[in-house]
Simulated assay, not measured.
Amino acid sequence: MLVKFHVEDGQADLLMQHTGQRVASKAFLLASLSAPGLAVELQDARQEIARLRRIIDRQQQVLEGARSAASLLLEVAGQGDLFMEKVPSPPPSSSRPAPSTPKIGTKMPRHTPARTLGELFGAPKIRPPQ
């Protein structure tokens, strides 16, 4: 089949450089034959880019959540010892009467000696080999 069309010299030179051909007709033939495969490759690349952008969006959401959590943690950690302050009690209701004395903190009294978990749960003491 014979196909005729007019192109400017600069366009033909550019296509010959791109394809590595010395004759414009061969350069145009090579370019036209590679066009369908390049179109499929371009479509695949666009789909891959879209998939990677979705992954990046998800990772940015995770990072933003982690930043928020870290910010809250720093805020709570920077407030001093929250457990030494008076623990607020919920208001009394008919099913739950008000406590008789307010609870303060969760720290153990100083006169109680520290005990190991084994002592707390009754595990036998293991003696090191002699």
Rank of each mutant, 00 (worst) to 15 (best):
L29R: 11
L30I: 10
S32R: 14
L33Q: 14
S34Y: 09
P36D: 04
G37Y: 07
G37N: 12
G37W: 06
L38R: 15
L38P: 01
L38A: 12
L38F: 09
E41Y: 04
L42C: 07
Q43L: 08
Q43N: 07
D44E: 11
A45W: 03
R46K: 14
R46N: 10
E48Y: 04
E48N: 00
E48S: 03
A50D: 09
R51L: 03
L52F: 01
L52M: 08
I55P: 00
I55K: 01
I55A: 07
D57Y: 00
D57S: 01
Q60L: 07
V62M: 08
V62I: 09
E64F: 03
E64C: 05
G65V: 01
G65E: 04
A66E: 05
S68V: 01
S68A: 11
A69I: 06
S71V: 07
L72A: 13
L72C: 08
L73R: 06
L73A: 14
L73F: 08
E75R: 13
A77S: 14
A77E: 03
A77T: 07
G78P: 05
G80Q: 11
D81I: 09
D81C: 12
D81M: 06
L82K: 08
L82D: 04
L82W: 08
F83Q: 10
F83N: 07
F83I: 03
F83M: 14
M84G: 13
M84T: 13
E85M: 14
E85R: 15
E85S: 13
K86N: 11
V87Y: 13
V87L: 15
P92Q: 13
S93M: 10
S93K: 07
S93T: 15
S94W: 09
S94E: 15
S94A: 14
S95L: 14
S95P: 01
S95H: 04
R96M: 13
R96C: 04
R96Y: 05
P97W: 05
P97E: 12
P97T: 04
A98S: 15
A98M: 11
S100T: 10
S100Y: 06
T101I: 12
T101N: 12
P102E: 15
P102M: 12
P102L: 14
I104R: 13
G105P: 05
T106P: 03
P109G: 03
H111E: 13
H111M: 05
T112L: 15
P113R: 11
P113E: 11
P113K: 09
A114D: 07
A114C: 12
A114W: 07
R115D: 00
R115H: 11
R115S: 10
R115M: 14
R115T: 07
T116E: 01
G118D: 09
E119F: 00
L120K: 05
L120W: 04
F121E: 02
F121Y: 06
F121S: 02
G122F: 03
P124N: 02
K125W: 06
